[in-house]
Design a protein around this nucleic acid. Structure first.
Length: 447
DNA sequence: TTTTGAGTTGTTCGA
DNA sequence: GTCGAACAACTCAAA
C-alpha cells in the first residue's frame, strides 16, 4: 500500500485541485497536511487568520466523508512537511509564485529525493504558460489577455474516492468566527451568487455604494475557489461576464509578473522610480491608516479595511493613490499595510496593483495621472452613501457635498453637527498642491 | 532588423 | 455644462 502526502497551501479545496486529484488517483492512502507558518500567521490581520481557520475546519470536515482528518501542524513549514513526508511515497502540492514560497518549496524539494509532485492549481493559466511569440513573458496586460483568452483550459472532473488518513488529525486553532462561512461548498455558493449578478458587472463594479463587485477575492486567495471553475461558471455570454473573467486574467498576469520578477516585492519594476524622494512622514501614514485624512472617500475606505479586512476595489485605488501621490509616502508602506489587513491579502496581487497605482510597475498608470479624491468620490459614490456608512460623523451632510466638507458653509456644517478639526479633520494636504509636488518628484526621479 | 499600432481604471484647462 | 486636447514621450508586441 502506497501513501501520498498532500500539502495544502493556498488551495483549500478538493474539487479541481490537481495535487489532490493525482494523489488520490495514485495512492491507496492519502495524508492531508496543512502547516500554519508562524511568520505568515503573525503577519496576517484577524480577518485573514479567522477566515483561514474557518476554511481549515471545513476542509477537515469534508475529509471526514472518507473517515479522514486534516493534519494541522504549526511551525517551520520545511521541517513540518519533511517530518510528515517520512512515511510517504510521494508528496503533492500546487505551485506558488511568491519569492518566500519559492524559497520554502526549494528547501523542501531538496530534501525529498525526487518524491515531490508539483502541480499548477492556483491560476487559470500558470506562470510561464502564456508567453509572447518570442517565448518571453508579457509585460503589458492587453496582449497577455489576448493570448490568455485564446488558450484552452478546463477544470478537472469531480474528484473520486479517497482513503484519507484519520489520525492524529486535529490541530485546527480555535478562533473567533470568520466573516464568511468557511470551505469549498460555501465558496461555490458565493460564486453562484456572483454569477447571478455578473451580467451588469462592468456597469456597476466601480460603485462602492452598491457593493456590486464579486466578493470572490478571498476565496481565490485561499483557493477555496478554483479560478478555472470560476471562469467556466461565469462564461462569456454578456459584457459583464466577460469583464469579470477579465479580472481573472489580471490575477494571472500579476502572478506571472511576480514569478518572473520576484524582486518587485521590494523594488520598483521601473528602476528609475526607486530614486523617488519619498517623504518620511509617520504622522501622515498613521492618519491614512486610521482613516483620518480629511478626505471622506479615502477615510471611508481605510475604515472599511480596518473593520472588515476588505475594501471595495475602486476605493483601494483611490486610497492607494492618495498615500502615494498626495502624501508622497513610499508605496511599499501602503502595500505592507494592505497586505496585513486584507482578508484577500496576496503578495502578487497586492504588489502588482500598488505598483500600478504608483506608476512604478509593469504596465503601470502614467505618473502624471493623479486621482482627485473629491472627483472620484462624487463620480463613484454619487449620493455619498458609501462614505456615510463608514464615516458616520459626516452622515447628516446631504448628497455628494459630503465628499468635500471643507467647501461647505458654516451653516450647512453646523446643521449636520460637523465641526472641522473637532468632529472630523480638515484635509491633511491640499490636493492641488500635493498633485504638483508628486508630479515634480516623479519627474525628478526620471532625470 | 525595422516598423507600426497600441496602450484598465485620470485630471485639468480652455474653448 | 460639455467637449477635446494636453499631459510625455515610451515601451511593448507582432508583423
Amino acid at each position: 500500500m502506497t501513501t501520498g502526502l498532500v500539502w495544502f497551501r493556498s488551495d483549500l479545496r478538493l474539487g479541481d485541485n490537481p495535487a489532490w486529484a493525482e494523489a488520490t488517483a495514485l495512492h491507496e492512502r492519502v495524508v492531508a497536511l496543512f502547516v500554519i507558518d508562524p511568520g505568515l500567521w503573525d503577519g496576517s490581520g484577524a480577518a485573514r487568520r479567522n477566515q483561514l481557520g474557518a476554511h481549515l475546519v471545513a476542509l477537515d470536515d469534508s475529509l471526514g466523508q472518507w473517515g479522514g482528518r486534516l493534519l494541522v501542524r504549526r511551525g517551520d513549514p520545511v521541517e513540518a512537511v519533511l517530518e510528515a513526508a517520512r512515511g510517504a511515497d510521494a508528496v503533492y502540492w500546487n505551485d506558488d509564485v511568491t519569492p518566500y514560497a519559492a524559497r520554502r518549496d526549494r528547501a523542501v524539494r531538496s530534501e525529498l529525493d525526487g518524491r515531490e509532485r508539483v502541480h499548477d492549481g492556483r491560476y487559470v493559466h500558470a506562470p510561464g504558460q502564456i508567453l509572447t511569440s518570442a517565448g518571453e513573458p508579457y509585460r503589458v496586460f492587453t496582449p497577455f489577455h489576448r493570448r490568455w483568452a485564446a488558450e484552452p483550459w478546463a477544470p478537472l472532473p469531480e474528484p473520486g474516492e479517497a482513503r484519507v488518513a484519520g489520525d492524529p488529525g486535529g490541530g485546527v486553532p480555535d478562533l473567533p468566527p470568520a466573516v464568511m462561512p468557511g470551505g469549498e461548498a460555501a465558496a461555490l455558493v458565493r460564486l453562484a451568487a456572483a454569477v447571478d449578478r455578473a451580467d451588469d458587472y462592468d456597469e456597476v463594479r466601480d460603485r462602492p455604494d452598491l457593493d456590486a463587485t464579486s466578493r470572490l477575492s478571498a476565496d481565490l486567495k485561499f483557493g477555496t475557489l478554483s479560478p478555472r471553475t470560476a471562469a467556466r461558471d461565469i462564461g462569456d455570454e454578456s459584457a459583464g461576464r466577460r469583464s469579470l473573467v477579465r479580472q481573472l486574467a489580471w490575477r494571472d498576469f500579476y502572478a506571472q509578473v511576480m514569478h518572473f520578477h520576484p524582486d518587485t516585492t521590494a523594488r520598483s519594476m521601473r528602476r528609475e522610480y526607486d530614486s523617488i524622494a519619498w517623504r518620511d512622514d509617520p504622522e501622515a501614514l498613521a492618519a491614512w491608516q486610521a482613516g483620518l485624512t480629511g478626505y471622506p472617500i479615502v477615510d471611508a475606505g481605510m475604515r472599511q479595511l480596518a473593520a472588515e479586512g476588505w475594501m471595495h476595489n475602486r476605493v483601494r485605488m483611490i486610497a492607494a493613490s492618495f498615500l502615494v501621490k498626495d502624501l508622497l509616502v513610499d508605496w511599499r508602506l501602503g502595500e505592507r499595510h494592505f497586505r496585513r489587513l486584507l482578508v484577500d491579502g496576496d503578495v502578487a496581487q497586492n504588489v502588482g496593483n500598488w505598483q500600478w497605482v504608483a506608476g512604478t510597475g509593469t504596465d503601470a498608470a502614467p505618473y502624471f495621472r493623479v486621482f482627485n479624491p473629491v472627483l472620484q468620490g462624487k463620480r463613484f459614490d454619487p449620493n455619498g452613501d458609501y462614505v456615510r456608512r463608514w464615516v458616520p460623523e459626516l452622515g447628516d451632510l446631504d448628497g455628494a457635498a459630503l465628499h468635500a466638507p471643507w467647501m461647505l458653509g458654516p451653516l450647512e456644517l453646523e446643521t449636520a453637527g460637523v465641526v472641522l478639526g473637532d468632529t472630523y479633520p480638515p484635509p491633511i494636504v491640499d490636493h492641488a498642491e500635493a498633485r504638483d509636488a508628486a508630479i515634480a518628484a516623479y519627474e525628478a526621479a526620471r532625470g
